[in-house]
Design a protein around this nucleic acid. Structure first.
Length: 920
RNA sequence: GGGCGGUUAGCUCAGUUGGUUAGAGCGCCUGCCUUACAAGCAGGAGGCCGCAGGUUCGAGUCCUGCACUGCCCACCA
């Protein structure tokens, strides 16, 4: 950076260029980082056909901050990137594309459909990667993985076969959630419940052999076609005499038993329930207890079957209307009540889910859940924030088996072969995969049926739930089941960061399957980040139209600004409200950093004219060896800024260790803007251009040292800007990137309480002077004299030594010191306990404004003093409170009393001047 | 039906073991284009910390109840 420095920071100019250079040079390959302790984190793999949304951006920002921080702290660092094939989502998307051409997957057939999905993946699958590169994420692209890559496919087969042999995976006929649109089974997690206004229909079922009816209530009348019983509570006085009798099913004219079962809730509806084992989970359980037939009345795509008689072929909801009409017409409908209830819908396509009995594959969870719970109890796995830990444990404790088979075509096909002769299942010989048409398949089908020896075998048509392969991600990406160097080095991972919305889908599965298959908890720490909402805290959704495309904002404000915004808002445990104005504020911060650099270089040009060069003033040796820092004669402000830095760096590190990104970002923001720009630079200005060449040199060396350290401190948060500016400084030979530089290390010896206290006093005096100037409406440039009284003689000496910067900061031409407290009659005075200051000028004071200010102050002080006096008069307080609290309170009280006295004097003086104008 | 969280300045939110005048960003008011930065500088205004009790010398912070609000889990037909 030399003469031509743009006044405003323009991120677009530099970000793209650095992003590309980082990737091209392989900067983030794990091998490029230091050879220290290992830090490894895997990306929560985004859907390969998706794009980066603001939630990813938050997640990736947090991961990248930690990754860069560890890399700079001397760790051997790997952030492993990759994508998920995302079975059902991807298939739904491709099916929608086909639908535009009036095609269905069934028309294409399995092979062709799969080919189309691969095509789609090839076309849209690069988006995420491009975006991640654009965002400058420090991932190791040489280790990029995809869940359908052959090695990962093999890991899935291996995992399946092992669990199958351990009887943790089984096949069975149970009631599951079925999506009539996707035509597949879903896990419980993939069904979301929505409260909807529905009806409760009360139906009369005639009791056979009597004139009685039994009244049942239902929210889904169409299922009555498949009723195989009516159930009542066995101790229900109203109905127990009917148990063992039969009811006649209306419309179907079929006799069904009336059974007693304790699961029936006597309070609900009529206390009698129609039982449809095929189409309702409760009824399914009840039906198996009573050996009831399971009658299917619906096709897989939600139409009525032939056995539904006159309703055959109707859509399930049309059938509902017709059935209700018919029941009413035939006198079987007693009445209808409004009944809000929750309806299960497919998470992916929002179709109402239909429970149905089906043969599926399941994974037995409880043994693995026990291990997971123990890991948490033994602190082998810590979950942050803490309330998520409880949610995790609660879920584990109530875990149910996981339906892992999907009737999809996009995914890992189950490595089991069915004998066409005897139906026996035989697993693949091993987990080997082979490439067919560029993608992987099980390569070792069994030669013959394990039971009858027939070679007429057919592979199970189902694929695995996409989360099955994701569950293996922390180790499948590193070469498992082989014992690879990467697996040995990077597994278990150091940490996992994910959104809390996939805690059960993904995180929990990794812990369970990971520990089962590898014998180790895949990561010792799990941080669950919050979700991003709009500026009013509303969930972002297409319907609300409040979805933010991060790339839009990046175009406008830069990646660094958006990253910083996300970081500074990311307090653990609560969601983030994101607004464009907020990002604007941190773009301003980026601009501030840019302009601080600009200040240095613009002034340096002048200084260099005297013979010094930046290579001497900002050389790495000068910055790092820094003998000037140890100098006891170091100017106060330098001692102060190094002390501040030494306070901020450990706070930032500690905050990052605890995932308190907002705290880390706040510390950095206020250090850079408040301490460095507002005070340090302003204070240094005269010294940097001092006639005393040696003093100026020292000033330059120090300001560069602080500035360069600040860049490294900022780098994990604002990688592009800091990279750009860092390269403008002299760097050691061969230095490639600030990303490989060391995170600042600040010796405790830099801490300097005295300097901080002294600077605080000067800042206060400066502030009081500026306030006085504002009261007097003095033009900013006009220099005036001031009179200063300092109660503490030692402090007075200090101020005398620092008179030049003080004058400059407060724009004073001269400061004279008073030996006694200032007479209140001499004009505009500001006083606090430690000092009093008067600006000497002929300007008229705004009397009403000044009185208003004084009255506010008086009121505040009186209130405060009263409360403190009350406390100090309280015997119990004096005897029980810690001594330091008591003495502190006493000191403060004395100060407040002094301030109050001064304020009262001032008020009296103004009032006595009989409405005349007070002049200074 | 269970569980979890939120309620602090006009807005969005921090506030780590209870302790002396409760903070930030944005917004607002006043004055400044002071050659690093108007995406800036300086000075200000603005808060019964949801309500009611309780514990304590002392509560935004701990406990109980209530109100409102958001989320998660759950097979109430």
């Amino acid at each position: 950076m030399t003469k031509e420095i743009p006044k405003a920071y323009e991120p677009q100019l530099i970000e793209q260029q650095w992003a590309q250079r980082w990737v091209d040079s392989g900067l983030f390959r794990a091998e490029e980082s230091a050879d220290g302790p290992v830090f490894c984190i895997v990306i929560p793999p985004p859907n390969v056909t998706g794009y980066i949304h603001i939630g990813h951006m938050l997640e990736h920002t947090q991961i990248d901050i930690l990754t860069r921080w560890h890399r700079m702290s001397g760790h051997r660092t790997l952030w492993l990137p990759g994508m998920d094939h995302a079975g059902i989502s991807t298939q739904v998307v491709v099916e929608r594309e086909l639908a535009k051409q009036n095609l269905t997957r069934q028309q294409l057939g399995r092979e062709e459909f799969e080919r189309r999905v691969w095509e789609w993946k090839a076309k849209s699958g690069g988006t995420i990667k491009k975006q991640m590169i654009r965002l400058g994420e420090s991932v190791d692209w040489s280790r990029e993985r995809f869940t359908l890559d052959p090695p990962l496919y093999r890991a899935v087969l291996e995992a399946f076969l092992r669990l199958y042999k351990q009887e943790l995976i089984y096949r069975g006929r149970y009631i599951i959630n079925w999506c009539p649109r996707c035509l597949t089974a879903l896990s419980d997690l993939e069904v979301v419940h929505e409260e909807r206004q529905g009806s409760l229909w009360f139906l009369r079922y005639p009791v056979v052999g009597s004139n009685e009816n039994i009244l049942v209530a239902t929210t889904r009348p169409e299922t009555m076609l498949g009723d195989t019983a009516v159930a009542v509570h066995p101790e229900d006085e109203r109905y127990k005499q009917l148990i063992g009798k039969k009811a006649r099913l209306p419309l179907m004219n079929r006799e069904i038993p009336i059974v007693g079962d304790a699961a029936v809730d006597r309070e609900f509806g009529t206390g009698a329930v129609k039982v449809t084992p095929f189409h309702d989970p409760n009824d399914f359980e009840l039906g198996r207890r009573h050996n009831l037939p399971e009658i299917d009345v619906m096709t897989e795509d939600g139409h009525m079957l032939a056995n539904a008689g006159p309703y055959a072929g109707l859509d399930r909801f049309d059938a509902r209307k017709r059935i209700v009409e018919d029941l009413k017409a035939q006198g079987f409908l007693d009445h209808v009540e409004n009944h809000p209830h929750s309806v299960g819908i497919c998470d992916r396509c929002k179709t109402v889910v239909e429970p149905r009995v089906s043969t599926q594959w399941f994974c037995k969870m409880s043994p693995m859940a026990e291990v997971a719970m123990k890991a948490v109890a033994d602190a082998k796995l810590s979950i942050v924030p803490d309330n998520q830990r409880k949610i995790f444990l609660d879920w584990m404790a109530n875990i149910r088996d996981w339906c892992i088979s999907r009737q999809l075509w996009w995914g890992h096909r189950i490595p089991i072969w069915h004998c066409k002769k005897c139906s026996t299942m035989t697993p693949a010989v091993n987990s080997d995969v082979e490439m067919i048409d560029g993608h992987a398949r099980a390569a070792s089908p069994p030669k013959a049926c394990g039971k009858c020896g027939s070679s007429d075998l057919e592979q199970d048509p189902d694929v695995l739930d996409t989360w099955f392969s994701s569950a293996l991600w922390p180790f499948s990406t590193l070469g498992w089941p082989d014992d690879t160097p990467d697996l040995r080095t990077y597994f278990p991972n150091s940490l996992l960061i994910s959104g809390y919305d996939i805690l059960f889908f993904w995180d929990a599965k990794m812990v369970m399957l990971g520990s089962r298959l590898t014998g180790r908890i895949p990561f010792p720490e799990l941080y669950l980040h919050s979700l991003v909402r709009d500026e009013h805290g509303q969930k972002m959704s297409k319907m609300r139209g409040n979805v933010v495309d991060p790339l839009d904002w990046i175009e406008k404000y830069g990646t660094d600004a958006l990253r910083f915004t996300l970081a500074i808002k990311a307090a653990p445990g609560s969601d983030i409200s994101l607004s464009e104005e907020g990002v604007l504020g941190y773009r301003a911060f980026a601009n501030k950093i840019w302009n601080a650099a600009r200040f240095l270089y613009v002034n340096l040009d002048k200084f260099e004219a005297g013979g010094d060069t930046i290579d001497q003033l900002a050389s790495p040796e000068s910055r790092n060896s820094a003998p000037h820092r140890a100098d006891p004669e170091l100017p106060l402000v330098d001692r102060w800024i190094f002390s501040r830095l030494a306070r901020v760096v450990p706070k930032v590190s500690q905050a990052l260790r605890e995932f308190r990104f907002h705290e880390a970002a706040h510390e950095i923001y206020h250090f850079f803007w408040g301490d460095f720009c507002d005070w340090y630079i302003e204070w240094c200005k005269p010294r940097l251009n001092s006639e005393n060449r040696e003093a100026a040199r020292a000033a330059w060396r120090n300001i560069f040292a602080v500035y360069e350290a600040a860049l490294r401190l900022l780098h994990p948060f604002m990688p592009f800007l800091t990279e750009e500016l860092w390269h403008q400084l002299p760097q050691p030979a061969g230095a490639r990137s600030i990303a490989l530089a060391r995170f600042p290390e600040t010796p405790a010896a830099w801490l300097d309480e005295a300097a901080e206290t002294d600077v605080a006093l000067i800042q206060e005096i400066t502030g009081a002077s500026r306030a006085l100037r504002a009261d007097l409406k003095l033009e900013p440039k006009r220099k005036v004299s001031a009179e200063l009284f300092i109660s503490d003689p030692a402090k007075r000496k200090l101020i005398q030594d620092q008179i030049d910067p003080l004058s400059r900061l407060a724009i004073l031409s001269e400061v004279s010191f008073a030996a006694a407290p200032l007479n209140t009659e001499g004009g505009q005075v500001r006083s606090v306990a430690q000092f009093e200051i008067r600006i000497i000028s002929a300007e008229t004071v705004d009397i009403p404004a000044e009185m208003a200010r004084l009255r506010r102050e008086k009121e505040r002080l009186e209130k405060d003093i009263a409360s403190k006096e009350r406390q100090l008069n309280n015997e119990t307080f004096l005897s029980r409170a810690p001594a330091e609290i008591v003495t502190g309170l006493k000191t403060t009280l004395t100060e407040r009393q002094v301030e109050l006295r001064k304020a009262l004097e001032r008020i009296a003086q103004i009032e006595n001047s009989a409405g005349g104008s007070a002049t200074a």
